[in-house]
Design a protein around this nucleic acid. Structure first.
Lengths: 147, 147
DNA sequence: GTACTTGCAAATCTTTTGCAGACTC
DNA sequence: GAGTCTGCAAAAGATTTGCAAGTAC
């Protein structure tokens, strides 16, 4: 149900439409990756200057409900949105705020272990792992400051 | 430098003091575990009603700078504070918002693998892992909704 | 015409900042 | 008396809500 046609009909069943604003928001999320609502709004306004941030929030909610985008908490406040297919684990450096991505396979059997230990179904892509990135470690090897 | 005496002298070196408000905030964090600034404030006000939320924020910042407390992003907005020694990985259920904790050892060699793959120094306690807890899975086994 | 969408303004919530008075040494 | 600490009020930033006007079918 990810292709354009079925998206339209999914919306239609609910009496909703794929409006230009919603399409622009979806496009912006696709293009930007890891964008905050604010950033998405800026991007959309590059094409259609009058689109309101309120509309962006509402569109993001709707698109998330439809399973087209998802949001990830990268720490320090702002959630970021990306398209649903964009599946990997995020690594956030809390020194420079850089975001790196690694395939979920790198987690190995962590999900299984959490399931076994606590019955917890891990959703690895929803949250980021925090730490210090290579660049920052090389720049300043001793501090392991946290934010 | 975690005991009361050296804390006092650390503060003193900076021309600062361990005021009743700061002590109350520290106590509240100790008692509550995973408390938001809001919750800490409520707790403190139970003892000293006039303490302002501003003071709580400032005390939390200071205590964090001193390495006595740390904050963790558990997703959906609010950071929560806990005492520094409180070291484990948090599992947040995004259905019921329940927080579970597992020893960091359960991550196995994840930290090593991230280091090897990306030179990333994982700080496992800073962020939570997100997913669905046992209770919610049993209550409603099919949905794997995200928040 | 009805129902959905949008933009705008205002409300809300969280966190930060400026400042004057109180307190400590 | 100098410098720190606090409470209050206001500012700032992010997100949500109410509502009237616009639009699609």
């Amino acid at each position: 149900m990810t292709d354009r046609g079925s998206l339209r009909s999914t919306l239609h069943q609910r009496g909703m439409r794929m409006t230009p604003q919603r399409q622009l928001v979806l496009d912006a999320v696709r293009e930007l990756e890891h964008a905050t609502p604010e950033q998405v709004c800026k991007r959309v306004q590059g094409t259609a200057a009058t689109v309101n941030i309120t509309t962006v929030y509402r569109a993001l909610d709707l698109l998330e409900e439809l399973g087209l985008v998802r949001h990830t908490h990268l720490g320090h406040g702002a959630p970021t949105y990306s398209v649903e297919e964009h599946e990997h684990v995020h690594l956030v450096c809390h020194r420079c705020d850089d975001i790196d991505e690694v395939p979920t396979e790198l987690l190995g059997d962590l999900a299984d272990r959490l399931d076994a230990a606590r019955g917890f179904a891990l959703d690895a892509t929803h949250l980021a792992l925090s730490g210090v990135c290579r660049k920052c470690r090389e720049a300043n090897p001793h501090v392991e400051e946290r934010r």
